[in-house]
Simulated assay, not measured.
Amino acid sequence: MAHGGGSAPVPRRARRADAARNAELLLSAAKDLFGEHGPEVALDEVARRAGLGNATLYRHFPTRGDLLVAVYADEVAELCRGAAALTDRHPPGDALFAWLDDFVVHVATKRALALAVTEGPDERRTELFERWHGSMRSTAEVLLSGARAAGAVRDDLAVGDLLALVSGAAMTAADGEHARRLLGIMRHGFEPPARPSV
């Protein structure tokens, strides 16, 4: 079939690359705007910040719920990916607490986004949150195991207890900095008791 104007069709690979780039631009813009104004920000503003048209936004994210899910999933993935870099740069105990520092700020500052994501159908909400919580729990378990093996935390500290305490501090904190302060106080309770000198 001839193409009008003599212009060649865009190769499929280039279209896929453009689509992936547009999705990244939209996610980045949404993350920034949600952080600045909350998850209720106008979707037109997301498209404008990304430098794209509304049609492109709705092609990638047909509903606000789809965009919220994508943004929160990206936040969780970024949090979990960060653990590998921390274990490369720090001893096991410090890596655990550096990640918990990121985790406590995540919970304290992404609460409105997480609540907005839960406005979808119950089955979808449950499946998504189980997946995200599973990712964070697995990441914490790996870091905690390393810290426990290095003698940096108490032997009886379980990952469920650890995340419950840290999440509780994050959800009651005034902001991210207050959450970090509470984590610093809790750290002394997580560390093993000092051995008596002989």
Rank of each mutant, 00 (worst) to 15 (best):
W99S: 03
R154P: 03
V117P: 05
R131W: 06
D101Q: 13
F103E: 08
D88R: 12
R81G: 07
A116D: 02
A147F: 03
R81I: 00
R125P: 00
V166Y: 10
L96H: 02
E119D: 11
A85W: 00
S145I: 01
I185P: 02
A85P: 01
L165M: 14
V166N: 09
A116C: 09
A152Y: 00
E177K: 07
V105Q: 12
A149H: 11
R81Q: 10
K110M: 09
G120E: 08
R124N: 04
T118W: 05
V159G: 01
R148C: 05
A169G: 07
G160W: 00
G120H: 00
D122M: 14
A174N: 00
R131M: 09
M186Q: 11
P92V: 00
H106T: 10
R124I: 11
A116H: 03
L128D: 02
D156G: 08
H106P: 08
P92N: 04
G146W: 01
L183F: 09
D94M: 11
F190M: 13
L183C: 07
M136G: 09
A169K: 06
L157K: 00
P91E: 14
R180V: 06
L115Q: 12
A95E: 00
L157W: 07
G134N: 04
R124A: 14
G184F: 08
P91M: 04
E141S: 14
G93M: 03
L162Q: 11
G189L: 13
D94W: 02
A98D: 13
A152T: 01
E127Y: 04
A147P: 06
L183E: 01
D94G: 11
T118L: 13
